[in-house]
Structures are given as C-alpha cells and as structure tokens.
C-alpha cells in the first residue's frame, strides 16, 4: 500500500497554484489535509500525475467575521474550528458536529475545504454547508465563482468544482447560522462515518420557521431534504400530522445501500433521527 509515483508542487500563492492547474497536463490533485486523499493514494485508488500541496497557501487560512458572514478559509483545519471563538459564538452547529468527525489526530490535519471538495456523501461537513446555507468561493485563472452549497454537491465525489479551480473560502451567513440547530448521527463506532446523519437549522422554533434539513450518508451526495422542510414549516414539534407528512416525505426520497445498512434501514433511521433532531432543536 505505497502510493504510486507522482510529481509534487507546493505553490506559495493562490496565483501560483492556479497557474499550475491551468498549465499542467495530466491530472493535478490538490491536497489539503490529505486525510482522505492519502488513503486513496495508498490504496492506489487515486493515482494523480501531480499532487499540488495547498498547505503553504496562507491566503486560504483563517476565520473572520465580515459583512454579515463568518468567512472560513478553505485550509482551516478542524482543530482550528474547534478552538475558534468565532465559530463557537456564531456557528455552534459546527461545534456540535466536530466531535463526530473522525478523531483528534485526523482533525488536527483535516480541513474544511478538503472535505467540501471531496464531497464524501457520508461526511459531516458538506451536509453542514447545506444546513448553514453556505456559499463556496472557488477560483481559477478564469476568475472567481461563488457557488451556493445547494448547487455545489452534484454526485458521488462529484462537485461543481472544475478541474482548474480550488476552493478558497466558505461564507456562512451569520443570520443563517442561528442558535436553533440540531445535529444527530448514528455511527457504529465513535468517529466512524455515520450510517445516517442529520443537521438542522431553523430561524424560529415556536412554530418552526426557516428550517433547513440536511442529510448525510443516505445517498450519493449530501442531501437537502426540502420536502421535509416544507412539511414541517410553520408547525410545532409535537404536531403529529406534520411529522407524518415529514416521514412520508422521507419515504419519497431515494436512499442508497452501503455496507452498514440497506436503503430501507436508512430510511427508517432517518425517520428516527429526524424525530430526535427536532426534539433537540426545540430544547
């Protein structure tokens, strides 16, 4: 399990990185924290021609509060999120999710941008982006694009990111990262990818308004459950009729099997988690 040969570049600036992406022939894989890419390379499931190391790009680091957004540099490591007062104060949903993301040694190195770019359907961070109504800023030598999280995740490990683009930062609207949130996941072991998981935010809870419900580890991508949001909008947690509609909405979604559970089991578990998450949301 040794990685195949590749060339290595470590740009010092984003411009330098974009130039490499624009000019290099063959597959260039940006490496952020590498906590998913390195295993894939060690298994030789990924064999890029060139590895472009983003770890020297200071422009992609740091968390700031600006213009109504919490702006998180793509190379911000999970550990930095854990220690950030800004995150704790304004996006507590991220704090609730972080302990479930692998283990301390992985969080010391793994980055938010790397997780979003990889778009693992079982990962927490992409789903959080959906629940938080985040915008992903990407750049290439062609220019800057801002992509809503809702439009970013396109399929299994597939995103709106073009081959010559990298993620620079993530904008989370402060108004969309309110105190009303819930995060639940069911993992066989602490830190594992979940069998199913759910992240919810709401503007108001009595009744529930402005709900955003994101599911992960249910399909080929993180899924925003709009039908559930609609079923629950303007209802209260104890509303059995609304809950029934929400569960029906889950039933209409297409879930995918994995080693831990069939689609049918996932469907059931999402129903259970939804109930628990709503209770958490409103307490």
């Amino acid at each position: 399990m040794k990685a195949a040969e590749f060339d290595y570049a470590k740009p010092r600036t984003v411009d330098e990185a974009l130039a490499i992406l624009a000019s290099h022939e063959g597959e260039v894989r940006p490496i952020a924290g590498g906590q998913s890419l390195m295993p894939m390379m060690n298994f030789r499931l990924a064999q890029p021609d060139m590895l472009m190391d983003l770890n020297a790009l200071e422009e992609l680091q740091g968390i700031r509060d600006e213009g109504g957004f919490i702006i998180i540099g793509a190379m911000t490591r999970y550990r930095e999120l854990e220690c950030s007062e800004l995150i704790a104060a304004h996006i507590p949903l991220i704090c609730a999710a972080l302990p479930h993301i692998a283990h301390a040694a992985i969080r010391n190195r793994g980055t938010i941008g790397g997780s979003i770019a990889l778009a693992d359907p079982a990962a927490e961070m992409p789903a959080l982006m959906l629940a938080l109504e985040a915008t992903i800023t990407v750049v290439s030598s062609r220019g800057v694009r801002r992509i809503l999280a809702d439009e970013f995740f396109l399929g299994l490990y597939e995103t709106a990111l073009a081959d010559d683009e990298i993620i620079t930062e993530i904008h989370v609207p402060r108004s969309k990262a309110p105190a009303h949130f819930a995060f639940c996941e069911l993992a066989r072991r602490h830190g594992d990818y979940a069998i199913v998981g759910i992240a919810i935010t709401a503007q108001e809870i009595m009744p529930m308004r402005g709900l955003r419900v994101a599911l992960f580890s249910v399909s080929d991508r993180p899924v925003r459950a709009v039908a559930i949001e609609q079923a629950l909008e303007n209802t209260s947690v104890g509303d059995a009729g609304a809950m029934k509609l929400a569960v029906q909405a889950i039933g209409s979604m297409a879930f995918q099997d994995d080693l831990n559970a069939t689609d049918k089991t996932k469907l059931h578990l999402v129903g259970v988690l939804l109930k628990r998450a709503l209770t958490e949301l409103c307490t």
């Binding site: 590498g34 906590q35 190391d53 040694a105 190195r109």
Partner: peptide, 11 residues
C-alpha cells in the same frame, strides 16, 4: 499536534 504518519508525506 498529533497526526497520522501515514497520511502525511515526508516532503
């Protein structure tokens, strides 16, 4: 900070 030695390149 602790890291996995197999998930980081020597370079």
């Amino acid at each position: 900070a602790c890291v996995r030695g197999c998930l980081m390149l020597a370079v």
